[in-house]
Write a protein that binds this DNA or RNA. Structure first.
Lengths: 230, 230
DNA sequence: TAGATTGTTAATCGATTAACAATC
DNA sequence: TAGATTGTTAATCGATTAACAATC
């Protein structure tokens, strides 16, 4: 009986590094468009807002794509980061919840330009179901919630985006997972319970503001005593 | 000459902890609305999707608000987290860029419910400037980009949200900082350069998808060899 | 008192950083 | 060869975890 083979060719890349790779890639694409052919770790790091040591350490996890004494070939490095990220193939995205945020996501040009294709829109609201929304050069019709599984299947969607109110989020999540989706981007202010093999990323707009408010308050707390002192 | 006093009453709270406090707070408020009066670290942690050890460690940085053998008083703990986060006072928010995303942010109910008040809207586009948008029970008129400083001043805004295209982001950022804003939430896919005392948080929707795509691809790379094996 | 649960300790883990040997 | 810059090493830092003493 053959042993199960895992991580055949998969080098392990730290999470913190993976989170920065898309930034490096976007900046490199920008440099390519500007006509740059070569870039040093010092330059690229500055453009990305990180230290050159961190950049080189990050890139070292992908392989050895630079030339000592010279730097990195912009196109070559850009390609290899894209390949590592899986950006060389398009990924199908289903958006559930076509309210204000859902609408904004559908029309977000950054998705298409980075290789994502919105292949389905789903909502509960009778007024919204059936609505036609143009996505790039295509037109999509909003499907009813009951058709979620069908939409995922027919669109061969890999990623589900939850842009519903918090109350609906867990149910939508369960159905996405049942339909075979293993990657979920959650905008609802709810903690989702998922099987181990499902990857959830959460974006909570209010949480971001609360973190900023915390630091803002700290600044005020710190300067007030000084002001009272001087 | 009196020494400058810093961190008079400011305990240092780790960044990772600060990032989780808003989650704890929201879940506690939910429990309060459900009528809970007491909660153990085990229960609260489960509802927040973290381990109880992490939760207790996090809370220990705020002080000692629990009772051994009993747990935490939901209302009492909720209040102290809110106080630490600065959520007990309302913070003024200016949104720059009233496109699809900007519109979605304006009408996002989660802002008001967590103590943020949109006090200004700014855009360059002549069609959008002058438009009236209802924010909760108020109505705001979109101001021209030239009035950015005035809007920040008159609204006493503490936080700036950048929802413009990438090309405009750095300029908008500079002007927000000049107008006195020290906390910025950036939705543009651009790396902002700011003075040291300015806190920037960045939300890049495409980056989130790219990170998901990376893991999705890894899953496929891992399962394919196995499938070919069996 | 006995049972429960917090707050803290100490070990472990992962990420960052600075320095530099390798090498173009 | 001399100068430049990568890729790696080792030290440091911060976050997580498990275990448990303190104490309700």
């Amino acid at each position: 009986m053959p042993l199960p083979i895992t991580r055949l060719n998969g080098r392990d890349i730290p999470d913190a590094t993976v989170a920065r790779l898309p930034i490096y890639h976007r900046v490199l694409v920008g440099m390519l468009e500007m006509g740059s052919t070569t870039v040093s770790s010092e330059e690229l790091a500055a453009s990305c807002g990180v230290s050159s040591a961190k950049l080189r350490k990050d890139l070292s996890h992908l392989g050895s794509y630079g030339t000592r004494g010279v730097g990195y070939d912009v196109k070559f490095l850009s390609y290899h980061i894209a390949r590592e990220l899986g950006s060389t193939q398009p990924w199908g995205v289903v958006i559930v919840g076509v309210g204000n945020l859902g609408h904004a996501l559908v029309s977000y040009r950054g998705f298409a330009s980075r290789g994502f294709r919105v292949v389905g829109l789903v909502d509960t609201h009778p007024d919204i179901v059936g609505e036609s929304i143009s996505v790039g050069d295509q037109v999509l019709t909003v499907s009813a919630m009951g058709d979620l599984e069908k939409v995922v299947r027919e669109g061969a969607a890999h990623i589900g985006v939850i842009a519903t109110p918090a109350e609906a989020a867990q149910d939508v999540c369960d159905r996405l997972v049942d339909a075979g989706v293993r990657s979920i981007l959650n905008f609802a202010p709810a903690v989702l319970v998922v099987p181990q093999d499902v990857e959830v990323r959460k974006v909570d707009l209010a949480v971001e503001l609360q973190i900023l408010a915390f630091h803002e308050q700290r600044r005020i707390d710190e300067t007030l005593p000084e002001a009272m002192n001087g």
